[in-house]
C-alpha cells in the first residue's frame, strides 16, 4: 500500500523523506511505479502548492529553473529559447505538461534527456538544505541522496555554442537510443573549453572528459573532430535495453556526435 503525505515546504518534504519515500514531481515515473506495484515506492511526499518552485528567472549570464518547472513551462518561456528543442524532446505534449526538471534529474536510464543538456550548461543545483551542488557530482550518487532539489542554475549559451540531438526509434516521439548535448565555445574559430554529455550511454547522463579534451583547440570540421569521435567508443560502456544493445549504441554514437559537431541534424 502506498501512502501520501502532503506538506507545505520542500524542507518539510526532505525531513519526512527516508527509505521508500519519494517526492512527487509531475508523477510521470512515480505514478507509473504506483500503478504497476513497484515495491520501491511505498510513500509519496507531495507539496501542497508546488507553483512557487516552478518558476524561471534570469540571473545575469545564467538562468534559474525551479525544480518543479515543467518541460511545457520551459517551452513557453522566452528566456529559455535555447532549451526549447531539449524540452520538446521529452515525451509527447501531455508528458511535457507534467514532467518536471527535478524529476528528469532522477529519471532512470534511458530517460534524463533534459539532464544531459543541463550537464553541459554547468548546472548547479540548489538543494533543500540551502547548499549548492554541481549536477555532475549529484548524478553518480543520486540514488542515495536524501536532500531534494529546489532549483537549477544553468549557463545561458551564446549563438550556436549549445547543441542537442536525440536519437529515437519511434517517430515523432520515443525514448532515447541516445542523446547528446554539447557546449562549444570558440576562440578565433577554435574550440575552447568544450563540454560534451551523453544520455542513455551509461547508467546516468554523463560528461566524457576524454571527448572534451580531444576537441580542445580544434576547428569544427571533419579533420578537427576525428580524435573526439574515436574516443567515444573507448570511454563509454552503454547498457543494453529493449531499444538498443550497448554494442549498437557504441557503434552509432560517433556518427551522431559527428553530425552534432558539424552542425548537421541538430534539433
Amino acid at each position: 500500500m502506498v501512502t501520501i503525505t502532503t506538506v507545505d515546504t520542500l524542507q518539510e518534504a526532505a525531513a519526512s523523506s527516508g527509505q521508500g519515500s519519494s517526492l512527487l514531481g509531475g508523477g510521470t515515473l512515480l505514478m507509473r511505479g504506483v500503478n504497476y506495484g513497484d515495491q520501491d515506492v511505498s510513500r509519496i511526499v507531495r507539496l501542497r502548492q508546488p507553483t512557487p518552485l516552478a518558476g524561471i528567472s534570469s540571473e545575469g549570464e545564467r538562468i534559474r529553473l525551479g525544480a518543479f518547472a515543467t518541460m511545457a513551462t520551459i517551452m513557453k518561456s522566452g528566456d529559455t529559447a535555447f532549451l526549447h528543442p531539449v524540452a520538446r524532446a521529452v515525451g509527447g505534449p501531455a508528458i511535457r505538461n507534467m514532467a518536471t526538471v527535478g524529476g528528469n534529474i532522477f529519471a532512470p536510464h534511458p530517460y534524463g534527456d533534459f539532464a544531459v543538456a543541463l550537464l553541459v550548461l554547468d548546472a548547479r543545483l540548489r538543494m533543500s538544505d540551502g547548499s549548492e551542488m554541481d549536477l555532475d557530482r549529484l548524478l553518480p550518487v543520486r540514488d542515495t541522496e536524501t536532500r531534494l532539489v529546489e532549483s537549477v542554475s544553468a549557463l545561458r549559451p551564446a549563438g550556436d555554442d549549445f547543441r542537442f540531438l536525440k536519437v529515437t526509434r519511434v517517430k515523432p516521439r520515443g525514448a532515447s537510443v541516445l542523446s547528446i548535448a554539447a557546449w562549444l565555445p570558440r576562440r578565433a574559430g577554435r574550440v575552447s573549453g568544450a563540454r560534451v554529455a551523453f544520455g542513455a550511454m551509461a547508467p546516468t547522463p554523463v560528461r566524457v572528459p576524454e571527448v572534451e579534451a580531444a576537441l580542445e583547440g580544434v576547428n569544427l570540421d571533419q579533420n578537427g573532430i576525428e580524435r573526439a569521435l574515436q574516443s567515444v567508443a573507448n570511454n563509454l560502456n552503454p547498457p543494453d535495453d529493449s531499444l538498443a544493445s550497448g554494442w549498437y549504441r557504441k557503434a552509432v554514437a560517433p556518427v551522431h556526435l559527428g553530425r552534432l559537431l558539424l552542425g548537421q541534424g541538430t534539433r
Partner: peptide, 11 residues
Amino acid sequence: PHLSCLTLAET
C-alpha cells in the same frame, strides 16, 4: 492535456 493514469487524483 494530461495523462489521467499518471495524475495523483488529489492534485
